[in-house]
């Protein structure tokens, strides 16, 4: 569906995309994950032929993507990071306008517009002007304008920025439904939870480069760190802490603020060993938490920095 080879994009001396490669297969929800400024939006704009690039090749639907490639453009839907609607047109007028750029026939367009309104839950707001909508509803309108013409390939560039949790869930469910209905989706975000939740394959980007690509399981398997343990302990002596640190399968352990945190090696489960050590040394403990590794851990281990930075 999408084939990007050795894409290089420079802004003066800054290399925004550095020999960037990407392949998206039909039917995927492909996540581009990376911190702000990692090159996600630049990559999308190059794929859409909005940005000139210094080097490389972009193919959509097997054809080179150019500004005049209208047959490919007809099959694409785009949901921008910034809300792109007319403030002076109502919800239904906006959706009808953008759908009309793809589907000129009004009779053919009408059911598509209604479907998009139903899909995004905007039925009660169809006559509202955008300024009367909340942030979440505005984002939904932004999505409706991008998907009303039923595209085969949809680019969603951070569609949940500044959205309340309820609208965010609605949007994420909608994206999954679009995919179920046959659309291939490219989804960019710097929220790892969202990407983990909906994407079938993920690319982690940093400084214009793809640092890792795979399913979330494959990505997590790439790193050494496994589950993270947190145990509430009133008082822990250095002797016991050192004993815990010496346990096999444990990468690190530290005690701070009445919390013991320990990181296990990937694929090894050391919860029972840690608790046994505490019991054996008569150390009382409260609640115990165990978390599997996250994409942030993957990003942290690969790049040496936090995804949220």
């Amino acid at each position: 569906m999408i084939q990007v080879n050795n894409l290089v994009k420079r802004y003066g001396d800054l290399v925004a995309l550095d020999h960037f490669n990407l392949e998206v297969r039909e039917g995927e929800i492909f996540g581009l994950l990376g911190p702000n400024g990692s090159g996600k939006t630049t990559a999308i704009n190059c794929m859409l032929s909005l940005l000139k690039f210094s080097k490389g090749e972009v193919k959509l639907f097997g054809e080179p993507m150019r500004p005049g490639n209208y047959s490919s453009k007809r099959r694409i839907g785009i949901v921008m990071q910034n809300v792109a609607v007319f403030n002076e047109l109502t919800v239904i007028e906006n959706i009808d306008y953008f759908c009309g750029l793809y589907v000129p026939d009004k009779n053919e367009r009408r059911p598509l517009v209604e479907e998009a309104i139903a899909f995004t839950g905007l039925h009660d707001f169809r006559k509202f002007l955008p300024k009367k909508l909340s942030g979440g509803l505005l984002r939904r309108l932004n999505i409706a304008c991008g998907i009303a013409h039923k595209p085969d390939l949809i680019f969603l560039d951070e569609p949940t920025v500044a959205v309340d949790p309820q609208s965010r869930n609605h949007i994420l469910e909608g994206i999954v439904n679009l995919n179920r209905n046959g659309a291939t989706i490219v989804y960019t975000s710097h929220y790892m939870e969202e990407v983990e939740q909906i994407c079938t394959r993920i690319m982690i980007m940093d400084k214009g480069k793809a640092v890792a690509t795979g399913t979330k399981e494959e990505l997590k398997a790439m790193i050494r760190a496994g589950e993270k343990l947190t145990v509430e302990i009133f008082d822990l002596s250095d002797t016991v802490l050192n004993e815990i640190k010496s346990l096999s399968g444990l990468i690190e352990a530290e005690y701070d603020n009445q919390l013991l945190t320990a990181r296990c090696v990937n694929e090894s489960y050391c919860l029972s060993a840690v608790l046994d050590t505490l019991r054996r040394n008569n150390v009382g403990f409260g609640r115990v938490f165990s978390e599997p590794p996250t994409l942030n851990d993957v990003f942290l281990e690969i790049t040496g920095k936090d995804l949220k930075d």
Partner: peptide, 20 residues
Amino acid sequence: VYLQANMSALGARRTVSPAK
């Protein structure tokens, strides 16, 4: 302004559409 992708998000959305 509303037709240039480098001026507004609306411009970008309209530029990537198949409308000539």
